[in-house]
Design a protein around this nucleic acid. Structure first.
Lengths: 239, 239
DNA sequence: AAGTGGTCTAGACCACGCC
DNA sequence: GCGTGGTCTAGACCACTTA
């Protein structure tokens, strides 16, 4: 990670300190003026860093008092934000394994054409992967990627991490996603590839993923066994 | 809404314009310098407003190009962020009704004591409400509020909106929440108060809600019938 | 009264897209 | 080269908490 950004560097240093418990929960950080001196920068730059901390649940800023450190230990991050399975499983440190169940270039059906705003002659990569955690197949990821943006793809890449390939090799910038979580009835496919025990329903996380230039390049369904699904989030009220 | 804030006023004006389609999707907003002149303010203030728009999925900023307007029409907001049922149902314009099934001051059991970090002599308000939408009881909200922060409460307030009472009458500022979404097996209580048809599982949204001074004052479980649950979110990648 | 965070300003330089 | 957004600065005034 190369950053020429002072405020990002400060954010990372402070957030690391909080995660590692160097600052005690419910105590305040040094004041903005003190931090500006410590980091040899202006107050506005410090404030950018602190605002990032506040957005991500590390601190609560209180006028007249200071920036109070929040308890961040409870916040494991299973599905929140926009991270790939590989990043997730690394964070959690679980034994996990990915199997590519389907891989190929297809003419999309109506549903996928609609999800990706495709024309009649567009092609998409279809990738279906099952995720095994602690010995059980629990997650089925179905990815559809517009060939316009991803001209080349291999099974090997899918076994590793598609996002890593897209960002590091293709140098495309993944920017944002619209996420939807719903519960659906299990399909044949779910039964085939997952260890479903007796569950009749499955949690589906649907993602429309966009690049930096706002073009839609991927539609994903991440299908999770009911009992293993967990989503955590930090939410601020208002604006 | 009284705001002495220029940047908030600008944010609201621009977001209204986008929601109402006054600016076309995929076109750019006026440049930051132009907006600074239009609103008779500095560029940094404009940038604060635009950053809010970007965070909330209204625009995508692209260096060298401008601020591209995103398609915001698909984003209905069922459970996202931190909003009360009353605010939600008003937004969605559905016919809905709230019934208070349980109401009282209790000595909390172990589970609630843990969730709210309570001592042996603390008391909490327990409120259980069912939510009827389009003729079916679909959501069961179980609220536990620390009496330290909410000394007085009535059944009538719960039939209207607890949050409205807390914010407008008590003038407390609800600041942030840690949210968790999981699926659990239905309980007796779920069967009693909800129209569950044949479902054996239920989606549970657990919230720990904090005030501005970082004190935890409420634990809530919002229990949704599987087929009626939907959560949408807008997520940006990285930092 | 002193210290805190919240807002706002007017300017500067940079990296990037486009013509 | 010009216009765009991204970062940074040094200063100002305000609202709020605490002593």
């Amino acid at each position: 990670m190369k950053t020429n950004n002072k405020y990002l560097a400060i954010y990372q240093e402070l957030s690391e300190g909080i995660k590692q418990g160097l600052v005690k929960v419910n105590e305040t950080l040094p004041s903005e003026n003190e931090l500006a001196v410590q980091y040899d920068t202006s107050r506005e730059t410090i404030r950018k860093a602190l605002n990032l901390l506040a957005q991500n649940g590390y601190i609560q800023k209180v006028k007249g008092k200071g920036s109070i450190v929040l308890d961040v230990t409870k916040m494991s991050f299973p599905v929140s934000g926009l991270v790939s399975f590989k990043e997730l499983s690394q964070n959690l440190g679980r034994t996990s394994h990915t199997a590519v169940e389907k891989f190929g270039l297809i003419k999309p059906g109506n549903f996928i054409m609609q999800q990706l705003n495709l024309g009649a002659h567009d092609e998409v990569w279809e990738v279906v992967r099952s995720r095994k955690i602690d010995g059980e197949n629990i997650i089925l990821d179905k990815d559809y990627l517009n060939r316009k943006h991803i001209p080349f793809l291999t099974k090997e890449i899918c076994e590793d991490s598609i996002y890593r390939y897209i960002e590091e090799e293709l140098k495309l910038k993944i920017s944002f996603a619209k996420k939807e979580i719903v519960v659906e009835e299990c399909t044949e496919e779910d039964f085939n590839y997952l260890d479903l025990i007796n569950f009749q329903h499955i949690v589906v996380v649907k993602n429309h993923v966009y690049l930096e230039d706002t073009s839609l390049f991927q539609y994903t369904e991440s299908r999770h066994r009911l009992d293993k699904f967990r989503f955590v989030d930090f939410a601020r009220r208002g604006h």
